[in-house]
Design a protein around this nucleic acid. Structure first.
Lengths: 205, 205, 205, 205
DNA sequence: CGATAAACGAGACGGTACGTCGCGTCTTCTG
DNA sequence: CAGAAGACGCGACGTACCGTCTCGTTTATCG
C-alpha cells in the first residue's frame, strides 16, 4: 500500500487545498506523457491543461520528476482493483488470470506512457525504482502468492526459485514495454509460461 | 552489422573531415554520460573535452540525441571482439562463457552508462531501439547459435522456444541494469539458467 | 516627446514587471557600450551586470539592436534638463551657453558612446534616426528658438535660413563626434559661429 | 592618390595572383553592402558571389573590416576623374561645379552604401577615418584650392576661415548621407552656399 | 620538360554571440 | 491563506559568422 504523499501537518487556517486538483493534475500529466514523453512534457503544459498555475504544481510536488513519479504510480493503481486473487486450482490459469489487469490493460495509453519514459527512468533512478515498485510491486506480490499456493498443492516443487520466476515476468513485461515499446500480449505471456517458466519451475535441477 | 553512419556523398572538394575526431567525440560523450547521464551531459562539455567546437559536433550529428545514440552503439561495439564462439560441448557452460563480455563487462563504465540512460531511452524511442539492437543484437545472435548447437547435440529438444529464451536473457540483463541499476552478476545469471531457463528448455510442454 | 515604449496592454494578472530594472539595464548597456562598442557588448554581459537573465532582456526588447536604441535615447534624455533657455540678449552668447549641456557634456561618456556606435548607426537605420532625433532633436528646437528671438530683436534679418544654420550645428557636432571621433570643443564651436554661421546669417544674400 | 595596397615583396615563384579578382571582390562587396550593410554582409557571401573562396579573401585582406574599407575607397574613386578643376572666375559656380561628381553622384548606390555603414564607421574608427579620407579628402583638397583662388581674386578676404568652410561642406554631406540617409542634393547645396557659407566667408568678423 | 612553389575553390575547424525555451522560484492580485 | 497568472535567474540548446586550416587542383616560373 504505497502512499503517494506523506501526511502533511495539514494547516487548519486559510483556504483548504483542493485535493481533487491532485487527481486532475496527475491525469493531465499522464495524457501529456503519453503523447510527448518526459522531456516533451512541460510544467506549463500541465498547468495550462488543468487551468491551474505552476506554483500550484510546485506546492504539491518539489520537481517535475516527482510529479511524474506520482503520475505513474497513480496511473498503475487507478484501474487495478482486485478484491480476491484468482484461484482456479491451476498455476497456469491463475497467472494468466492475473496478467490481464497488470500487463495487458496497459496496452492502450499506459503502454505508450511507459514506452515514452525510458528517458525518465534512471535519469532519476530512485524515482524510477519507486514508480517501478508502485507499478510492479503489487503484481509481484500476487504472483508470489499464487506460486506459493502451487507449491502447497504440490504442483511445483518446494525448492522452485519463485523469486526468479517473478522477476522474469516483470523483466519481460517491462523490457517489452519500456525498452522495446511493443506490447507483451496474452499470447506472448502464455508462451513464456508454457515454454519456459512452468517447465522450468517444475523441473528445476 | 549496423552502420553508425549512412554513407554520405562524401564530397571530394574542400578540407576532409577528420574522422578520428568522430571517435574522440563519441568516447568523450560516453565518459561524460557515465558520470552525468543524458541531461547532465552538455554539448559544450563534449566540445571542450575534445578541444573542438560545437559547430563541429552539429556538422556530424543533427542533435544531442543522435550523438548519444551513436555513442552508445559505438560503446557497445567497441570492445566485444569474439573470434570464435565458446564450444564446451555443454549449453550451460557455453552460455556462461558468453555472459562475461556481454553482460558482466558492462559492469564498469558501460553499466553506469546504461543505468544513467533510462532517461534517454524512449524519449527517443527509435534511437533507443537502435542502440539496444546494437548492444544486445549480437549477443542474441550468439546465444541463438549456441542453443541451436545444443539442439543438434540433442541436449535440448528441437521444439524448444529458443527465441523466447534469448529474450529472457536480454530482458533480465536489461531490466536489472537499466531499470533497476544493479548489475546482473554471474551468480544471478547462473541461477537464472539452472532454476528456470535450462530446465524450461529441456522440458517444454 | 518620443516615447521609449509603446503602451503595452499591461496585463493586470500575474507578477508585475519590475520597471526599475528597465533603467538599470539601459544604464548597464550604456556603460558597456562606452567601453566596448556595439559588437563588443554582449547580452550576457548586460544580464550579468544587472544580475538578471537573458530571458528578462528579451522579454523587454526583441533584439540587441532595439535594446541599444532605447539605451541611446534614454542616455540622451537622462541628463539634459533645462528649465529656461539662456537669454543674454545676444545670439552668440545664447548659442554658446547652450552648447555646453548639448555638445560639450557629451565629451565624457556620451561622446565615447556615440563614437563607438558608428558601427551601429544605420546598420539599423531607423533606430539610428530615432536615437539621433532623441539626442539632437531637442537641441535643434532650442537653437531654433534662440535664432527666432534674434530675428525679433533685429539682430539677424528675418529671411535668414535658420533651419540650415541649425543643421550645420548638428552636422558639425555629429560629424566630429561620430565619424571622426574627436570632440567638437567650445573653441571650435566659437570659431564656427564667428567665422561662418553668424556672419552668414547676418549677411545672407 | 592614396594607395589601396602596400607594395608586397611580390614573390616571383609560383602562380601569380589574379589581380582582376581584387576588383571583382570589391565590387561584389559594395553590392552586398548596399543591400545588407556591414553586419548583413558575410565573407562567405562575397566569396560565393565572386566564385572564389574565403582563403582568397583573407590572403588579400586581413579582416572583413579592411576589405570593406578598401571597397569604400575603391567605390569613391572609381567614378571621379577630374583632369582640371573648374575655373569660372566665380567661387559659387566653381564649388557647384565640383559638387556633382563628389556628392550628387553618390545619389544612387553609393549613397545607399554610405547610409548602411553607420554601423561600420567607428566600430572600426581608424578604418573609417581612412575610408572617409579616401572619399572626402580629395574633394576637400579641391575645395580648398578653389577658395584660395577666390582669395587671390579678392572675392573673399584673406583671413576667411577656409578650413572651417571645407569642413562644413564635408560635415553636411556626410551627416545627411550617413547619419540621416537622405541625399544632400544640388538645391540643398546651393542653399548652404548662398545662405550660410559664402556670406559667412565674405563677412567674417 | 618536369619539378616546384604559390594561388585558388571548397569546405572543415575552434571559438563565440545570438535568440529561444524550460525549470524552479518569486511576486502580485483575486477568491 | 490557496490559487491563477506570469515575471524572474539560470543555463542548455541549436544556429550563424569570423578567421584559420587543410585538402586537391591549376597555373606559372626555374632548372
Amino acid at each position: 500500500m504505497s502512499e503517494l504523499k506523506k501526511a502533511k501537518p495539514e494547516n487548519t487556517l486559510g483556504r483548504k487545498r483542493d485535493h481533487t486538483l491532485d487527481t486532475r493534475i496527475l491525469e493531465a500529466a499522464i495524457e501529456i506523457l503519453a503523447e510527448l514523453g518526459f522531456d516533451g512534457m512541460t510544467m506549463d503544459m500541465v498547468a495550462a491543461r488543468t487551468k491551474s498555475g505552476k506554483a500550484t504544481l510546485y506546492r504539491r510536488w518539489p520537481s517535475k520528476a516527482e510529479l511524474v513519479r506520482d503520475a505513474l504510480i497513480w496511473m498503475s493503481q487507478s484501474s487495478v482493483e482486485l478484491e480476491h486473487l484468482p484461484d482456479t486450482g491451476n498455476l497456469r490459469d491463475d497467472l494468466l488470470a492475473l496478467v490481464k489487469p497488470y500487463s495487458l490493460e496497459f496496452s492502450e495509453r499506459k503502454l505508450r506512457v511507459l514506452a515514452k519514459l525510458g528517458s525518465f527512468f534512471s535519469e532519476h533512478r530512485k524515482i524510477a525504482e519507486e514508480a517501478s515498485a508502485g507499478i510492479f510491486g503489487p503484481w509481484t506480490d500476487f504472483n508470489r502468492t499464487l506460486m506459493q499456493r502451487a507449491i502447497k498443492r504440490g504442483e511445483i516443487p518446494a525448492q522452485a526459485d519463485i523469486e526468479m520466476a517473478c522477476q522474469v515476468i516483470i523483466a519481460m513485461t517491462s523490457y517489452r514495454s519500456i525498452t522495446q515499446g511493443q506490447p507483451f500480449g496474452r499470447t506472448d505471456y502464455a508462451a513464456l509460461l508454457d515454454h519456459i517458466l512452468l517447465p522450468g519451475l517444475k523441473h528445476q535441477q
